[in-house]
Design a protein around this nucleic acid. Structure first.
Lengths: 184, 184
DNA sequence: TCGAGTTGTTCGGTTTGACGAACGCACTTC
DNA sequence: GAAGTGCGTTCGTCAAACCGAACAACTCGA
């Protein structure tokens, strides 16, 4: 799995964008961050490869999360009707997931509608480390969660658990749910 | 708004943790990332302040998103039953939202269950820049979206739109929906 | 018109991050 | 035991990030 963008240009653009949004001058930002004007000037011009501490202090001074300085923007307005969208058919389970929104490759925040039919359970292997699953059951009744810690859910119930351990889904009756997958 | 943790120790811990999780040696990781062993050794020991490019190449070699190297972990297993959880009552609308999961303050990924009753529309002001809303309607029928671009949704329908412009919610019948709010 | 205050840029000089070689250590293999 | 591999650490060297000052351009008053 490759990372996409060389971050140097992204950082340069992000710094200028965030600074202008904050409505402060380059010199003022440099002063607040405890850096030399020259350093910041070169960073915004795309020249240079800042250290973590340098970029961090800029994030602090700007009052924005660190990740906002290193990752690009996204998104607009979009509708996916019930039943539409790319459907991911699970091989060995009564289980259909529809991908609604995939986050940028670096801050994955994938959003699915998951339809389950009663039958054999869905054995999901552990995902990449650090992933977290959130499930809100819209209708029906399911059991879901890490192996040995499964919880039975009814409409409106919510459960979250780490996705980087093995876990199950099992529908007790025809159900559908909203699944938010964080890959961080 | 202050940033929380000095990132040097966090990075050191994250590097060692991710490397061990990947099951590779320090020398091997350094080789894959195109770095000197010495550099990586100092980074994992907490000494030194890596440049963005250096840390980036480590993220690539480890196959993990960049932010995972600079921000701490979180989360476990948790259930919120339908009707439970902190409820945010909207002042001037037939509108109840239940907060299910709030992301860490810097990578906000708030997850709500939103209950709407027919009546006057909910006028939502623009949130902070860069925020994005995702809605999956679980049951009922609503109109939602930015002013002038509202879409009518039925059960299972999905819509996403920028949250940093003014927008409306309006229930045509008693409804509830899952709302994912990204603040980035 | 002349300062005194900005703005962001470009210059040497110093600090330091990254490199590569050498080191000590543990474990095989002949 | 000697020679071979791997590991992670510590050293001196060099390039580069960072600094401070000097710089042109531009605004605002007196």
């Amino acid at each position: 799995m490759h990372e996409p963008a060389p971050p140097l240009a992204t950082i340069a653009a992000a710094l200028r964008r965030e600074r202008e949004r904050a409505g402060i001058s380059l010199a003022e930002l440099a002063r607040r961050a405890g850096l030399a004007k020259s350093t910041l000037s070169q960073l915004e011009s795309g020249t240079g490869n800042p250290s973590i501490e340098t970029l961090w202090s800029l994030g602090v001074a700007l009052g924005v999360p660190f990740s906002r300085l290193v990752e690009p923007p996204e998104a607009q307005v979009r509708v996916i009707r019930a039943g539409e969208g790319p459907r991911l058919q699970a091989d060995e389970a009564d289980f259909v997931a529809t991908l609604l929104a995939a986050g940028s490759p670096h801050t994955r925040r994938d959003l699915y509608v998951m339809e389950l039919e009663p039958g054999q359970a869905r054995d999901a292997l552990a995902h990449i480390p650090g992933s977290i699953e959130h499930i809100v059951l819209a209708s029906g009744r399911i059991k879901a969660g890490p192996v040995g810690e499964q919880v039975e859910l009814g409409p409106g119930d919510y459960v979250t658990f780490p996705g980087d351990v093995d876990h199950h889904y099992e529908a007790l009756e025809p159900s559908w749910a909203v699944l938010v997958m964080e890959h961080r």
